[in-house]
């Protein structure tokens, strides 16, 4: 799988969770990439983003969410 295809899969996963009503609650970055905690009411989903493009994408989504709030 190409780097782009890997990124697309990760971005789709984020999009899917956001479309289900999840909000990004917390982010944490370390040597292994970015860990994202998403919340919908009491439900929580944790996602690890490995690709650079997906991490950029998540940043944009975070800005959109911050603007909406």
């Amino acid at each position: 799988m190409s780097a782009y295809e890997e990124a697309v899969l990760e971005m789709k996963n984020i999009d899917s969770l956001l479309s289900q009503g999840y909000d990004i609650a917390h982010v944490y970055e370390n040597l292994s990439g970015m860990f994202v905690e998403l919340k919908k009411d009491e439900e929580r989903e944790n996602v690890q983003l490995l690709t650079a493009d997906a991490r950029k994408y998540l940043s944009i989504k975070l800005r959109e969410q911050a603007a909406d709030n």
Partner: peptide, 19 residues
């Protein structure tokens, strides 16, 4: 989005514990 803008945004949502 610049790196500096991104990091400022990330700081608002940073987790203090490892997720």
């Amino acid at each position: 989005m610049t790196w500096n803008e991104r990091q400022a945004l990330m700081g608002q949502y940073a987790s203090t514990t490892i997720l």
